[in-house]
């Protein structure tokens, strides 16, 4: 860092370095604050809707803010459904999905990024192709498959596939991109030192791609946590239902309780927001190759 501070010449600029930085910060803050509003609006709207009375909802956004915030809507949303059971179910699915995806995606990505084996490039394209079929087209065959294995009525259809790269094509590709960024010399010197690929994978690849692994875990978490369609179709037993699915009870044909729907939706999404906030901190102090490389 001190090299940066005792910098040589600053030809044209009239502003001093700290001044320049200040101006930059202010401009950036203004840009970010104004953009934030546009990105935050849907959430704000959900929040004010969740706090309204049904009568207020009849008038749409004629009045944006509720007269007296109905915080009780959140309580109602939680207490009218078996919240704890749904929460437990969501956590079970998320836990296995994240573990399973990290397990299968990292291993496979390593094979695609750093190992040479026959058919690798063909399989890579096949993997991409599995993402290109519209999901509706394979819905019924998948259901029939699980019915034949006898998994309907259990959670297995939403657990086991993750350990075998189910839905992981996206992450395998992503991690492949990151693994390819790890210098080959590092691997070579490890091999010369007698390390096997498993060792390289565990002690070299995984630690060096921590931000990517966090990203994979985060996206998997978000997807599984928010997904109601998979649970709707594949969880035949309502005792296995998740929060995202269970809280859809408030969406009915006519007598919809919009305020409860939105309260429920906020409850579902809030853990993901907190998690994102925590996880993104790791993106600031990322690891670098400094030191290992030379």
């Amino acid at each position: 860092m001190q090299t940066a501070e005792c910098k040589p010449k600053m030809k044209e600029s009239r502003l001093t370095r700290p001044q320049k930085r200040l101006v930059k910060t202010i401009v950036l803050q203004i840009v970010l604050v104004s953009l934030s509003f546009v990105f935050l609006f849907p959430f704000l709207w959900m929040l004010v809707t969740a706090l309204k009375t049904p009568q207020e909802l009849l008038h749409g956004i004629e009045k944006f803010f509720p007269d007296s915030p109905q915080w009780g809507n959140f309580v109602t949303a939680v207490t009218t459904v078996p919240f704890l059971m749904y929460l437990k179910n969501s956590l079970i699915l998320v836990f296995f999905a994240v573990t399973g995806t990290l397990f299968s995606a990292t291993l496979t990505a390593y094979a695609f990024a750093k190992l040479r084996w026959p058919g690798r490039d063909i399989f890579f394209v096949v993997m991409l192709a599995t993402m290109m079929i519209p999901p509706q087209a394979i819905l019924i065959p998948s259901y029939i498959l699980y019915a034949h294995i006898g998994w309907l009525g259990t959670r297995l259809p939403l657990i086991v596939p993750y350990f075998f790269g189910g839905g992981a094509a996206f992450f395998i590709f992503l991690l492949r991109q990151f693994f390819k960024g790890i210098p080959n010399e590092l691997m070579e010197s490890a091999i010369v030192d007698g390390a096997g690929h498993l060792k390289i994978f565990i002690y070299l690849m995984l630690p060096l791609t921590k931000p990517a692994l966090i990203t994979v875990a985060l996206i998997t978490f978000m997807f599984v946590w928010n997904d109601y369609f998979g649970p709707l179709i594949f969880l035949s037993n309502p005792d296995h239902w998740t929060l995202a699915l269970g809280l859809r009870a408030f969406e009915t044909q006519f007598t919809g309780r919009y305020e409860l729907m939105m309260a429920a939706a906020i409850l579902v999404m809030s853990p993901t927001i907190v998690l994102f906030f925590v996880a993104q901190k790791h993106f600031i102090e990322g690891i670098t190759f400094t030191g290992i490389k030379g």
Binding site: F103, S104, L107, A111, F164, H197
Partner: peptide
Amino acid sequence: KVGFAFASPW
């Protein structure tokens, strides 16, 4: 062999 082994879950 290692390549197939690593890719085997998928």
